[in-house]
Design a protein around this nucleic acid. Sequence first.
DNA 1: TCAAAAGTGTTCTGGCTACACCCATGA
DNA 2: TCATGGGTGTAGCCAGAACACTTTTGA
Lengths: 230, 230
Amino acid sequence: MAPRDHEIVRLTADLVILTVRSGRLCVLLVERANEPFRGRPALPGGFLRAGETIEETAARELAEETSLDGLPVEQIGVYSAPDRDPRDPRVVTCAFLAIAPDLPVPVAGTDAREARWLPLDEVGGLAFDHGRILADAVERARTKLQYTTVATAFCPPEFTISELREVYEVVWDVEVDRPNFHRKVTDAEGFVEPTGAKSTKGGGRPAVLYRAGGARVLHPPMVRPRAKSS
Amino acid sequence: MAPRDHEIVRLTADLVILTVRSGRLCVLLVERANEPFRGRPALPGGFLRAGETIEETAARELAEETSLDGLPVEQIGVYSAPDRDPRDPRVVTCAFLAIAPDLPVPVAGTDAREARWLPLDEVGGLAFDHGRILADAVERARTKLQYTTVATAFCPPEFTISELREVYEVVWDVEVDRPNFHRKVTDAEGFVEPTGAKSTKGGGRPAVLYRAGGARVLHPPMVRPRAKSS
DNA sequence: TCAAAAGTGTTCTGGCTACACCCATGA
DNA sequence: TCATGGGTGTAGCCAGAACACTTTTGA
């Protein structure tokens, strides 16, 4: 092969960290402190270091931003347009999706950057190609709700079926039939398991509390109905 | 942020090109001409060049290996283990999946490397982490058959329903009910459309020929039955 | 006793499975 | 006229959709 006709790049991991806060799907954004795009909102992220896999880079940045350790991250894709970063030399990024419960805010980052949750429909003007990355990650999250049990990752350790249903309704922006959802979730092997306790909040009958079950895939899958708004 | 604590990498695109040949799922492999892993089978691939996206790198390598232009490629993932390439400096790869019809072989590459189709169950001893990349890509292809129309990409421009069914049977390693498959495929909007011609091969009744339809997603999806061979 | 939210029962329907059956061609 | 593979008909089953209904709490 022809030697040295290839380009040297710097590799970053950018994180799309999603959560549900007060009935809205939110993403964690930071404000850029340096050029390029100084002052613009951006996805948290950082450079690959020696000896790391890019997953480890992502996990390290995630821990710094959310103080949630061991939260799984999933690759969304590589974004490598030559002009995506005006700096020289070239920067290629690998985007990751992470799903978090509603954390105590403001999220205390260990570095000076200000991080904040922003509802998806208020996001605009992101730096670089982060708008596209965010859109791709949200689409992935929506798809994953169908055939995996990740919805529980949006919830606190103990939750009610209604709280879990709210995750689906918020992320998919649909209404989900309450009785059918209850049956489907409680019948599905390993999706949720009862803790024995009951929720005391709420005006009506107390709800049984559940925790996430052992299953990762959902069988049969949830089917996403037609969107309610549009 | 702390400057210069990040690593410089070289980025490659590696291709998993799949096809169905004489009833078996096959992958295109090349023999490495240089160290490391000289003489070992490997996935075709190459380095990112200046001004290219990594998708363009993949498309360029694909065209060189198969002389099929414009075949779509899909990202599988990034493989970045620090020790995946014994060379220094570090090489990170982005893997791509491409699906091809049964091409006239041997595939004429423009470079000197010898490329050949190898049935999946005969693959072994791949260079680097290409064994894992291949496994991930095959799993992706299997999943994609469920809810997309990519199965037609395994077929020539005109094909019979039975040829399309064979794709599912080979890739999934299952038996598919012939009558039900026929109905499902011909009823699905945009999956296949008849050309008007009929196949002359085969001993029995001539089969109607179809070409790929316009739809990319399959609605409702194909469901993968339990594997026939354990 | 009423409102509110949790949870159960029941009917209907659409898609899938299984398999019987008919059709068109070559030998 | 028989073998071979293409294509259609149809009965049963099962899961999801829709929605009526019962249960358990606080006010």
